[in-house]
Simulated assay, not measured.
Amino acid sequence: MQSKALQTNPAKEKQQQHRADTARPRHLLPGLALCCALALAAMLVRHASGIAALSPLATAMVLGIVLRNVRVPLAFAAPGITFSLRRVLRFAIVLLGFQLTLTQIATIGWHGIVVIVATLAASFVVIRKVGALLGVDKALSELIAAGTSVCGASAIVATNTVTRGSDEDVAYAIACVTVFGSISMLAFPPLAEQISLTPAEFGLWTGATIHEVAQVVGAAFQGGTEAGQTGTVAKLSRVILLAPLILTLGTLATRTRAGQDAGGSVPMPWFVLGFAAVVLVNSVLSIPAEITRQIATWTTFLLTMALAAMGLETDIAKLHLKGLRPLLLGAIGWIFISVFGLALILWLQMPGFAG
């Protein structure tokens, strides 16, 4: 069991959010500037390294953790950090909707949709169950499940708006999806050759099972253009399932709190409905490709700011106290989603998908 010191205090969280919402702009500026600087640094690291699959989100979080834990005074930046972690994050999730259309989802066919939905649902449920068996805290299990089954770091920070795990829970879960997603990115291409997957099957496998979008792209395009396009669309199709997942978790959490008379309820995640609405708008309107690319760049930047803020609020000492069982849970989840997704693809004998 997680100690009381490590649990999220809903009253404290509400108070922090209220301070962020009511703070004057000049009070927000130092924290926003700090998160912005860390986000820029993280994106420059990826650009300088030449490694396209290097996630700036994870890099920004690490930079934030370093600053927090070398005891740099951060009180002056607290309102802006909280604002980045709440409002900036939610706005970025809404903007994610511009990266997906219903037409794109249709191109992978009903076979692909079955694989994606079944793999996501089975992985989420199994990881939560295994987490309970291992004695991993429920909130942390839920975050690892979301990051593994949906879309990595973005899913973790979005899911935490209703799960309400600690900042250390979020950091640990992101570390898991970063490590195991990177292993998949390196291991899947040679494995696909050994088992003679077609480009479409390989692309679907990567898109339905690898954690981060960048990791999917890095793996899928090693199998050629068709595999890369299929993998990207499959992955983005998983992203849209983030909306119903968070709404479901929020409803269940509200009912649980009401049953336990815990005082207070989980807020309705309206930003998720905004995400779904943007997907619908993007499906109906013809938005120029250049504008879509610009929005995608800004979305990544805002998400990176939010992860920098998360790092700035993460205490390594508390992270260390969680032990290795959550890491084992992440490994089990990674193996399960990889094997289950591949088995389902082979069982359905997937036809070739249009790019």
Rank of each mutant, 00 (worst) to 15 (best):
M1P: 09
V62Q: 05
F336M: 13
Q15K: 12
M1Y: 06
L302D: 03
L344M: 14
G50S: 12
A155Q: 01
R293L: 09
A262S: 14
A253Q: 14
I81R: 00
C35S: 10
C35D: 03
W334H: 10
Q194P: 11
A58C: 13
I108L: 11
W205K: 01
Q349P: 06
K318T: 14
D261K: 12
I65E: 12
A33C: 15
L280I: 15
A243Y: 06
K318P: 12
S3T: 14
F275D: 03
L63S: 14
E313C: 10
I316R: 01
I116F: 06
D169Y: 10
L100G: 13
Q349Y: 02
R293N: 11
F336Y: 07
E168A: 08
D261N: 11
K14P: 00
L34H: 08
R86K: 10
S49D: 10
L342V: 07
G250P: 03
I51E: 06
E313N: 13
E313M: 09
G147V: 00
V217W: 09
Q229T: 12
K138I: 08
L329Q: 04
A92G: 06
Q17G: 08
V114C: 07
V66K: 02
P288E: 05
L191R: 02
L140P: 02
A243I: 13
S154G: 00
A258I: 14
V72L: 13
Q260S: 11
G228P: 04
R86E: 15
L273Q: 10
F98K: 03
S184V: 05
T299F: 00
I316L: 13
A145C: 01
A77Q: 01
G228S: 05
A122G: 05
M185H: 09
R255I: 15
L252T: 12
R325T: 14
N9G: 02
A60T: 06
L342W: 08
A48T: 09
M1A: 14
G31R: 00
N69Q: 08
T256V: 04
T163W: 00
F76R: 14
L285N: 06
A187N: 06
T206I: 07
A77Y: 01
W334C: 09
L273T: 09
L252D: 07
S166P: 01
D261E: 15
L321D: 15
Q7T: 03
L280P: 03
T148R: 00
F91M: 07
I108W: 02
V66H: 02
A277R: 07
G64D: 11
A262F: 10
G97D: 08
S196A: 14
E313K: 01
R68K: 15
A258G: 03
T82L: 01
G355N: 12
V266Y: 04
G341M: 07
A306T: 13
Q194T: 13
G109N: 10
A77P: 04
K318E: 13
G80W: 08
E193M: 01
A331V: 08
A121E: 09
F202A: 08
A52F: 15
I105Y: 05
A11I: 14
Q349N: 07
H111L: 09
L120P: 00
L307P: 02
G228M: 12
V117A: 10
A276Y: 05
W205V: 04
L85S: 07
G112C: 04
E201M: 07
I335P: 11
V179A: 03
A37D: 00
L321Y: 06
H111V: 14
